[in-house]
Measured scan of single mutants.
Amino acid sequence: RKEMTAACTPRRRIINLTSVLSLQEEINEQGHEVLREMLHNHSFVGCVNPQWALAQHQTKLYLLNTTKLSEELFYQILIYDFANFGVLRLSEPAPLFDLAMLALDSPESGWTEEDGPKEGLAEYIVEFLKKKAEMLADYFSLEIDEEGNLIGLPLLIDNYVPPLEGLPIFILRLATEVNWDEEKECFESLSKECAMFYSIRKQYISEESTLSGQQSEVPGSIPNSWKWTVEHIVYKALRSHILPPKHFTEDGNILQLANLPDLYKVFERC
């Protein structure tokens, strides 16, 4: 597991931080080997919608929660590849102030007048994250320049770009939802926020969305749709870069829909 690298990086740093090793061990302890084997050997059937997909393993048909699986995938990559990410360069710098204002204007932020003026909160978020810029760049390849612009994001899987519609809320939550006081809790909560931002979430995906850094293989055609990215990038990574937690067998994120021999018997009677 320590050699797990989802995106190509030129050289690998050895990380011996106790906090990170502890988080890696927790993933191992909570892992479910049968689910790992199923995901490793599954045959992708198709997307139901951005949140759900169908896959077959041996004779069984499964309904998989793409949102939760991708979130767990990105969390584990962030923990196992800690401080070893490439950088996704933004085509132009994104001012943190503008991103924070967009987030505060969104109902998702939960902002009320009692929280104070949005401009003041946005300025605080910019200054707060600028103070964390060195650590964010060093460990997470999340790059913020001296003017308070976001200029780079971590490359977690080759050819995958997170849904940038979720970027404003991500920046807001970096400042408000991460435990910045304790090292282990900081790395864990920061990785979880980043994983949620990178995950496939239906509120940020339309039929026209593209999450891939590449064009489709047909010359002159439109960019790959999110469905292509889910199948050929995300579920491909799920084959080798995730140890599913045991609770996925109990919380409805992986559901067995049918045993195909039983279905064949039904059709034979028709």
Score class of each variant (00 low, 15 high):
214 Q>G: 10
185 E>D: 13
3 E>D: 15
72 E>Q: 09
56 Q>H: 15
186 C>Y: 02
29 E>M: 12
262 D>G: 10
233 I>R: 10
12 R>I: 15
120 G>F: 10
231 E>Y: 01
232 H>N: 13
88 L>N: 11
219 P>A: 13
155 L>C: 13
259 N>M: 06
16 N>Y: 06
234 V>W: 00
158 D>V: 11
93 P>T: 07
55 A>T: 10
236 K>A: 10
247 H>R: 13
13 R>D: 06
259 N>H: 11
246 K>E: 14
24 Q>F: 03
150 L>P: 02
259 N>R: 13
225 S>K: 12
125 I>A: 07
213 G>H: 12
218 V>I: 11
4 M>Q: 15
189 S>N: 12
98 D>H: 11
270 C>N: 15
246 K>S: 15
36 R>V: 06
83 A>Q: 05
231 E>M: 01
206 S>F: 12
269 R>A: 10
224 N>T: 15
50 P>W: 05
159 N>L: 05
91 S>E: 13
227 K>G: 05
147 E>A: 08
135 M>K: 04
239 R>N: 01
135 M>D: 04
21 L>M: 11
234 V>K: 01
8 C>P: 06
225 S>F: 07
179 N>V: 14
162 P>Y: 00
187 F>C: 03
118 K>M: 08
186 C>D: 01
40 H>K: 10
265 K>W: 10
220 G>D: 14
191 S>E: 01
179 N>G: 07
145 D>E: 05
132 K>Y: 05
247 H>G: 08
99 L>M: 10
229 T>E: 07
3 E>T: 08
252 G>K: 06
80 Y>V: 13
262 D>E: 11
86 G>N: 15
249 T>H: 11
213 G>K: 11
2 K>C: 15
112 T>I: 11
165 E>L: 07
126 V>C: 11
256 Q>W: 05
110 G>D: 14
47 C>V: 14
63 L>D: 01
192 K>C: 06
139 Y>H: 04
56 Q>N: 11
139 Y>M: 05
106 S>M: 13
266 V>F: 09
128 F>G: 10
117 P>C: 09
51 Q>S: 07
55 A>Q: 02
231 E>V: 02
197 F>P: 00
248 F>G: 02
183 E>S: 04
254 I>Q: 01
218 V>Y: 13
261 P>W: 05
248 F>S: 03
139 Y>L: 06
26 E>R: 07
91 S>A: 15
124 Y>K: 14
215 Q>P: 07
28 N>D: 08
64 L>E: 00
223 P>L: 10
184 K>P: 04
111 W>C: 10
140 F>D: 01
155 L>N: 08
38 M>Q: 04
184 K>E: 07
111 W>A: 05
264 Y>L: 14
175 A>S: 07
106 S>C: 11
253 N>M: 13
170 F>V: 00
171 I>E: 02
251 D>W: 03
163 P>T: 05
188 E>T: 11
114 E>G: 12
103 A>W: 03
118 K>T: 05
46 G>F: 09
27 I>T: 06
88 L>P: 00
159 N>T: 10
265 K>A: 11
84 N>V: 00
63 L>F: 05
210 T>I: 07
154 P>R: 00
3 E>F: 12
25 E>K: 09
126 V>Y: 05
60 K>S: 13
142 L>I: 15
106 S>Y: 10
210 T>R: 08
165 E>G: 12
58 Q>P: 01
205 I>M: 12
181 D>P: 04
169 I>P: 11
199 S>L: 01
136 L>D: 01
68 K>E: 09
8 C>A: 10
72 E>A: 13
164 L>H: 05
117 P>D: 15
15 I>F: 07
37 E>G: 07
15 I>R: 04
203 Q>F: 08
108 E>F: 07
44 F>R: 01
139 Y>T: 04
231 E>A: 03
25 E>R: 09
116 G>C: 06
236 K>T: 08
76 Q>S: 02
54 L>Q: 00
187 F>L: 08
82 F>M: 05
152 G>L: 00
252 G>W: 03
91 S>L: 12
93 P>R: 10
152 G>E: 04
18 T>V: 06
187 F>A: 03
103 A>T: 04
75 Y>R: 14
103 A>R: 02
108 E>H: 12
91 S>R: 12
264 Y>G: 15
249 T>S: 11
11 R>S: 09
109 S>Q: 11
197 F>R: 02
126 V>T: 14
254 I>A: 04
165 E>A: 10
144 I>L: 10
107 P>I: 12
223 P>K: 14
224 N>H: 15
6 A>P: 05
30 Q>R: 13
39 L>F: 11
260 L>P: 10
7 A>H: 06
5 T>S: 06
187 F>P: 02
266 V>E: 15
69 L>M: 05
12 R>N: 12
136 L>A: 01
123 E>G: 11
164 L>E: 05
219 P>E: 13
57 H>W: 06
154 P>T: 00
32 H>I: 06
198 Y>E: 01
118 K>Y: 06
151 I>L: 10
40 H>D: 07
54 L>D: 00
172 L>P: 00
87 V>Y: 12
113 E>M: 10
237 A>S: 07
267 F>M: 15
126 V>H: 07
55 A>L: 09
128 F>I: 14
149 N>Y: 07
142 L>D: 01
24 Q>W: 09
146 E>P: 09
187 F>R: 01
184 K>I: 07
65 N>F: 01
33 E>P: 13
143 E>N: 08
42 H>I: 10
77 I>E: 02
115 D>Q: 10
232 H>E: 05
119 E>A: 15
99 L>C: 10
118 K>C: 07
182 E>V: 12
82 F>E: 00
228 W>V: 06
90 L>W: 04
19 S>P: 05
227 K>A: 05
170 F>L: 08
240 S>F: 10
100 A>L: 10
125 I>Y: 08
138 D>Q: 04
1 R>C: 15
242 I>W: 05
79 I>W: 01
32 H>A: 12
217 E>N: 12
7 A>D: 07
16 N>T: 14
122 A>H: 00
36 R>A: 09
164 L>M: 15
62 Y>A: 01
59 T>N: 14
84 N>L: 00
242 I>S: 02
152 G>M: 03
93 P>L: 04
237 A>E: 06
121 L>A: 07
169 I>K: 09
115 D>E: 11
176 T>L: 10
99 L>A: 09
126 V>I: 05
233 I>M: 06
94 A>R: 15
220 G>H: 14
112 T>V: 14
206 S>A: 11
212 S>C: 15
114 E>T: 14
223 P>Y: 15
130 K>P: 04
153 L>P: 01
90 L>K: 02
175 A>E: 02
267 F>I: 15
156 L>F: 01
230 V>D: 02
126 V>F: 05
234 V>Y: 00
109 S>K: 05
169 I>C: 10
229 T>N: 06
120 G>M: 09
232 H>A: 04
92 E>F: 08
93 P>W: 02
176 T>Q: 15
130 K>S: 11
268 E>H: 05
21 L>I: 10
56 Q>T: 15
182 E>A: 12
254 I>R: 02
59 T>E: 14
154 P>I: 01
248 F>E: 00
127 E>G: 09
118 K>I: 06
174 L>C: 07
164 L>V: 08
54 L>V: 15
132 K>W: 10
248 F>T: 03
59 T>G: 11
113 E>S: 14
218 V>P: 15
186 C>L: 05
251 D>F: 04
61 L>T: 08
151 I>G: 07
5 T>W: 05
111 W>E: 04
135 M>A: 04
190 L>Y: 04
14 I>A: 11
75 Y>H: 05
269 R>Y: 04
219 P>F: 10
124 Y>Q: 13
5 T>A: 06
176 T>V: 09
194 C>P: 00
44 F>S: 02
157 I>D: 01
232 H>R: 08
214 Q>N: 08
203 Q>N: 14
261 P>D: 13
33 E>S: 12
254 I>F: 07
191 S>F: 07
235 Y>F: 07
141 S>K: 07
243 L>Y: 13
68 K>A: 06
173 R>Q: 04
122 A>I: 05
69 L>E: 00
5 T>Y: 05
3 E>N: 11
125 I>S: 07
196 M>D: 04
168 P>L: 01
75 Y>S: 02
222 I>F: 12
95 P>L: 09
255 L>M: 12
227 K>W: 04
146 E>V: 08
15 I>S: 05
98 D>K: 10
48 V>Q: 02
219 P>T: 14
37 E>L: 07
174 L>Q: 00
256 Q>C: 15
235 Y>P: 01
134 E>F: 07
58 Q>C: 15
249 T>Q: 15
159 N>H: 09
176 T>N: 14
237 A>C: 08
244 P>T: 03
95 P>D: 12
251 D>L: 04
3 E>Q: 06
66 T>G: 00
252 G>S: 15
233 I>V: 14
268 E>D: 08
176 T>M: 10
134 E>H: 06
41 N>P: 02
252 G>H: 07
250 E>V: 11
101 M>H: 07
100 A>Y: 02
226 W>M: 02
210 T>F: 07
86 G>E: 15
138 D>K: 05
155 L>V: 14
